[in-house]
Simulated assay, not measured.
Amino acid sequence: MVKALNCPNCAATFNPQDSICEYCGSYIITSEAKQVTYNLNEFKTIYKKIFFHEIEMGVSELPIRSGMANIYYSATKSDGGRLLLTNQRLIFCAHALNINPNLYWEIGLENVYRVEIGLNLLISQRIKIFDTKGNVTTFVVYGGKAWLEELERALN
């Protein structure tokens, strides 16, 4: 049974398996898949707006990859949620089951200095995001090498 959601643009009820609001034409990213790489040809100009969770994509902003991720603080502390890479930024939104359910993190790609693969944990890997201010943010993701390839491609 699929739970109906409300469109973040017009508030109409929509089926998340459809991804498109039949009332306003917005595309809503709701995938439950571990990892999704998007076909950019899928995002035609007919979509009035594109949303990830309730975050509206900017003008000419397109999703590249999304998936389950943990923002990693230490061996005993992390927050789970979803990570989205677009052609303009990297966004993390925590899911509701966290101690910090409203956690939101983002960085514009112009502020990313470099990315690298971290510790390999069999089916998941850490990816490290180094920003231009000297901060390092670490995520645990499935398919870390694919994330790294997509990040490097988006940065170039």
Rank of each mutant, 00 (worst) to 15 (best):
V36S: 05
T37S: 13
Y38G: 05
N41L: 13
N41I: 11
E42C: 00
T45W: 00
I46T: 14
K48T: 14
H53K: 04
H53W: 00
M57Y: 12
V59F: 06
V59W: 01
S60Q: 14
P63Q: 09
P63H: 02
I64L: 15
I64F: 07
R65F: 07
S66N: 13
S66I: 00
M68Q: 13
M68N: 09
A69W: 10
Y73D: 11
Y73Q: 08
S78M: 11
S78Q: 14
D79Y: 14
G80M: 08
G81A: 06
N87H: 07
Q88L: 09
R89N: 02
L90M: 14
F92H: 11
A94D: 05
A94L: 05
H95G: 07
A96M: 07
N98R: 12
N100Q: 13
P101Y: 10
P101N: 08
Y104P: 00
I107Y: 03
L109F: 13
L109G: 07
E110D: 15
E110P: 00
V112P: 01
Y113L: 14
Y113M: 13
Y113N: 15
L121S: 03
Q125H: 10
R126M: 09
I127C: 03
I127G: 02
I129G: 05
I129W: 06
F130P: 01
D131V: 11
D131G: 04
T132R: 12
K133S: 10
K133L: 13
G134N: 10
V136M: 14
T138V: 15
F139E: 03
F139M: 05
V141A: 03
V141D: 02
V141E: 03
G144P: 06
A146K: 15
W147L: 00
W147G: 01
L148T: 02
E150Q: 15
L151S: 01
R153M: 12
A154V: 04
L155Q: 06
